[in-house]
Design a protein around this nucleic acid. Structure first.
Lengths: 227, 227
DNA sequence: GGATCCTAGATGTGATCACATATCAGAAGC
DNA sequence: GCTTCTGATATGTGATCACATCTAGGATCC
């Protein structure tokens, strides 16, 4: 983990926040691992102060849980909680797909195609985390076209919360069926949106979320009971 | 504004956070007003440190906006943003009503009735802010019965963000038509839920949100153009 | 006379320090 | 031998301090 090279967010707190969140996103800090103030501060070359504020903000996002006087750990989701997150994602993302597909314009489509191309490259190179980033980039382009940034913000929030599980599921799907499997839904979504076929796009979104939830649930069950 | 009497949240930061958020909720800090670190600290009898962390967390919730080195102000919503919030609330709360109404049990109904009674009393006494609290309490009881805390959390988040406008709208509705007006939707919702009539409950939720959005939008238009 | 630069005050930001609380190891007691 | 108490250590929490940045007021130059 390291700090971004100063420039965009001039505030040290923001850079620390971004660094820790990125560490959680890419799996460097797995769910359940402790986040020690002085350790992180030393690792980032700052005082504990910005780290404290960053962790406080991460807690509000649901990425870490903090118990008073006992520190913070990266949030972990029980299978039940994960089901709730996915049920809510389904509700929000179906609507976002509907809105986006109805209002999408040329620049949005271009952004989606760009993200898709990068995702394909990343998958081919085996860089799963990066592929997931571009996947989210593609969807964000579509959802943002719908014109409701509040809705998009909530969706992104939920993505953050189940990022670790998305990584897990994508990783497994990739190593299991590199070609035909999970990464094909993006192509089908893109085609449906290009054809302005709202129903088809919604169907892809629904199917994609349900299948990835199934995949993750299976993995969790296997991890519980590795016969 | 004052600190809660120690006990519940033992952390000073949490108490400061609650105090400021409450100040925003009840209109003590109107939208757009500045939140000065040293002022708040002095007012609460603490050092600026907990206030800083509290404001950082409030920013993540979208209740305040902060520009680097220039301080924080209570978040203000443009009419467009307000429309986005209400569109998203409609999506989430219709679903929450559906889930809650289908799964509601006796204790949940009891909680709803208690909250309703308190709300009626508060309305009668002209305590609008308190009435709004009990209104949200009633809805939370229903939504929580649905069994998806993630969904409920997002709804509460959106409530916070448009709290100032809810207050405005409720205040106007109350002074305008104390008896027949806006506070009757809760009774109708309660009746629909007691009858386990999902469609009726959903209809009330939808109608309530649309009418309150209309009411707020009208008020904003009047404020813009007070002929 | 108006615009620009500069200085002084205010204020947010980051660091160091002091304290409270929790965790864990080892010893004493049962 | 196991439990329990008690100390030490680690670590989060809150306060004070030093600095950077922004804003407002006035003087100077065009």
């Amino acid at each position: 983990m390291t700090l971004a090279p100063l420039g965009e967010p001039s505030l040290l707190t923001d850079r620390v926040y971004a660094a820790i969140r990125e560490g959680i996103r890419n799996g460097e800090f797995p769910a359940g691992s402790r986040l020690r103030l002085r350790d992180l501060a030393a690792q980032l070359g700052t005082s504990p102060m910005p780290v404290r504020e960053a962790i406080g903000r991460l807690e509000q996002n649901g990425l870490v849980v903090r118990v008073p006087h006992r520190g913070a750990v990266v949030a972990d989701l029980t299978p039940v909680e994960l089901a709730h997150v996915y049920a809510t994602r389904l509700l929000l993302e179906v609507e976002a797909t509907r809105l986006g597909c109805a209002a999408v314009r040329a620049p949005d489509l271009a952004a989606m195609r760009t993200a898709y191309g990068r995702m394909v490259d990343a998958v081919a190179a085996g860089r799963v985390a990066e592929a997931l980033d571009h996947d989210e980039e593609l969807l964000t382009a579509l959802y943002a076209a719908g014109g409701n940034p509040v809705l998009v913000g909530l969706v992104e929030d939920l993505w953050q919360r189940c990022r670790a599980f998305k990584l897990l599921g994508a990783d497994a799907a990739d190593s299991f069926a590199p070609e035909a499997g999970a990464w094909s839904t993006q192509r089908r979504l893109l085609e449906a949106v290009e054809a302005r076929d709202v129903d088809a796009a919604v169907a892809v979104t629904r199917e994609s979320l349900e299948s990835s939830q199934r995949r993750i649930r299976t993995m969790l069950a296997d991890a519980e009971d590795p016969r």
